[in-house]
Amino acid sequence: MADFLVNWISSIPGLALPYALASIGLIIGERAGVLSLGAEGLMLVGALVGVGTVLRINDPTLGLLAAMLASSMVSVLFACLVVFLRVNQVIAGLSLVFFCQGLTNLVGTMLDWSNRTIPGLGLLPLGSLGALPVIGPIFFRHDALVYLLVPIILFVQWLLTRTTFGLRLRAVGENPDAADSVGINVSLYRFFAVVGGSALIGLAGAYLSVVSAKIWVAGITGGRGWIAVALVIFARWNPWRALLGALLFGGIEALIPQIAAAGIGLPQYYLLMTPYLATLAVMVWQGLKNDTVSDEPEGLGKPFVREERR
C-alpha cells in the first residue's frame, strides 16, 4: 500500500504539469477577454514541434523553446481572426483546433516524425536527495520543468495583479469600452495576451511529447486541451486555483496506470474515461454552487468594435 501511494503521488506532478501550464496560458488570454478554445490544437503544435526539433538538433531544451515559439506563431493566426477581424471566437477557436490537428498530422507524416522515440528531457540531478526513501521519489525525482512551474505561476500572478500591464490587460477583459475610453489599445492588449498565453500552452503540449511520452503520435494530447479549458472555469480565472485543479486531474490520471499495475481488474476503457468524467463532475459542481458573484471576465468572448462603443 505504501508503495502504491508513493508511486501514485510521485507520478502526479508530471501529469498535472500540462494541465497547469495550459490553463495558465488560457487564463492570460481569457483575462484579456478572448475565449480561446484552441488550446487542444496549440498543444498539438507544441508537441509536434518539440519532438521535431529534438529529432533534428537533439536538444530537449531547445525543443521546448521551439514549441513555445511555434504555438505562439500559430496563435497569431487566431489572434488576428478574433481581435482584428472580430470573428466569432467559438468558430475561430474550433477551426484552430481542427486546423492544428490536420496540420500536425500532415507535417508529422510528411517529415516522418511520427512514432520515433527521442531521448527527451531527463530528471534534474539532485544527487542523493532522490535516493531518500519516501520523499525522494515524491519531491526530488522530477524534471526541471516541474520545479519551474511555481515560479511561472508566481510570475504570471505578479504580472496580472501587480503591474500596470496586468491592470490594463484585466481592464480590457472586464470592460473594453471603459479601457478604450482611457486610451488603452484594446486590440493590442488582447493580441499580445493571446500570443503570450499560447507560448505556455505550446510548452504544455511539448511537455507531453518531449518529456512524458518521448514520442510524437497524431492526437497525442487526447483532449487535454479541452480539459484545460474546463479547468480555467473551475479555477475561476485564478492561476493558483488552476494549479489546484491541475493537481486534482493529474492525480486522477496518475491513478489509472497505478490501478492497472496493482492488478485491480477494472475495465480499461472505463478507466480511460475518468479524466473526462471528472471534468464533467467538476463543472457540474461549479454549476451547483451557483455563485452570485461571477469571476468570469465581463467582456469574455465579445468582440470589441470601437465604432460600436457606447
Binding site: 493566426l77 477551426s95 481542427f98 486546423f99 490537428q101 490536420g102 498530422n105 500532415l106
Partner: peptide, 15 residues
C-alpha cells in the same frame, strides 16, 4: 496523405 488533411482544408475554408 493523412485523411485529416480534409479537416485541415475545412478549417482553412472556415477561417
Amino acid at each position: 496523405i493523412p485523411f485529416s488533411m480534409v479537416q485541415l482544408i475545412q478549417a482553412i475554408i472556415v477561417m
